[in-house]
Amino acid sequence: MARVGLTTERLVRAGAELADEAGFDEVTVSALARRFDVKVASLYSHVRNSQDLRTRIALLALEEMADRAADALAGRSGKDALTALANVYRDYAREHPGRYAAAQLRLDPETAAASAGVRHARMTRALLRGYDLAEPDSTHAVRLLGSVFSGYVGLELGGGFDHSAPDSDETWGRILDALDALLRNWPAA
């Protein structure tokens, strides 16, 4: 029988905290059992295995970021919306590096289709309507923004800009200026 007080939600949240502290790669059912001082077997009534736990952490992270993005985007458009969305990703990654890494986990198509990742895509497309991009350019722009946000945040979290000038915040601002200019002047096919 599972230990009293352990729930799937509690385990997933503890796994997310462990990811932020030790890194997403360190999250396993065994590590979580040690954290709760229980036998590994007692967790299997809540999660199937380490991959299931990691998937649930990814879904939690996607949901948390989508909620933040929805709040940040409310009432904004154009560059203001672009900056708000970009900062949600960057700030979340800084505050929750393990969860942010979890959000990058490749999900199976069925799980992905039911995840908050769909909300992210819809919000990004809504933001891009302010730039008047039609298909397929809107899809290209969604991919561009995701690549830039993910790439910059990954380099920044990895210490890639720690010892160079100009300051990373200044570069981030210039990147957002450049993205806004590009989206306003999207090149013809």
Rank of each mutant, 00 (worst) to 15 (best):
V148I: 15
V153T: 09
W186G: 00
N87P: 03
A116P: 11
S168N: 02
E17T: 13
F161S: 07
R68M: 05
K39V: 05
F36V: 00
K39L: 05
T28W: 07
A188H: 03
P97I: 08
L43I: 04
T83V: 11
P109Q: 13
A16K: 13
A81Q: 03
A84D: 10
N49S: 04
E110L: 15
E95Q: 15
Y100K: 04
R34S: 00
A188R: 06
L82F: 02
A84V: 11
P187E: 00
E135G: 08
S164T: 15
E64H: 08
L32E: 04
G98E: 08
D25L: 06
R94A: 09
D52H: 08
G159M: 10
D71T: 12
A165R: 13
H96K: 08
L144F: 15
D80L: 11
A181W: 07
F161A: 07
L128M: 14
A188E: 14
G160T: 06
S138C: 15
R94V: 08
D37T: 09
R10W: 04
E21R: 09
L145V: 11
A70K: 11
V88S: 04
D162A: 14
W186M: 03
R129S: 15
M123I: 13
G78M: 05
A165I: 07
D132L: 15
N185D: 03
G130I: 10
H120A: 10
A116E: 09
V153E: 02
P97S: 06
T8D: 00
A114L: 14
D71G: 12
T124N: 13
R106N: 14
H46M: 05
W186N: 00
L155W: 14
Y92K: 05
S50E: 05
N185T: 03
H140Y: 06
A69F: 01
V40S: 02
V118S: 08
A114M: 14
S164L: 14
S45R: 13
A33F: 03
D67I: 05
L85H: 05
L11E: 07
T111N: 09
Y44M: 05
A58W: 13
T171W: 03
Y89T: 13
S30R: 07
S50M: 04
E95M: 10
L183M: 09
R94W: 02
L6P: 04
Y131Q: 09
D80A: 14
E26Y: 06
P166K: 01
D108I: 11
A61Q: 12
V12R: 03
G173P: 01
A33S: 04
V118L: 12
V4A: 07
Y152I: 07
G173E: 02
H120G: 09
A102L: 07
A116Q: 11
R56Q: 13
L133E: 10
V38R: 00
R174E: 10
G130E: 12
R68Q: 11
A189M: 09
K39Q: 09
F149H: 12
Y44T: 00
A102I: 08
T124K: 15
M123Y: 06
S30L: 06
L145S: 08
R143P: 06
A2R: 04
Y131C: 05
G158Q: 12
S42E: 07
T55Q: 15
R119W: 01
L144A: 10
E26N: 04
A72G: 06
D177E: 08
L176F: 00
Y92L: 04
A69M: 11
D91C: 08
D180G: 02
A113N: 10
D25A: 12
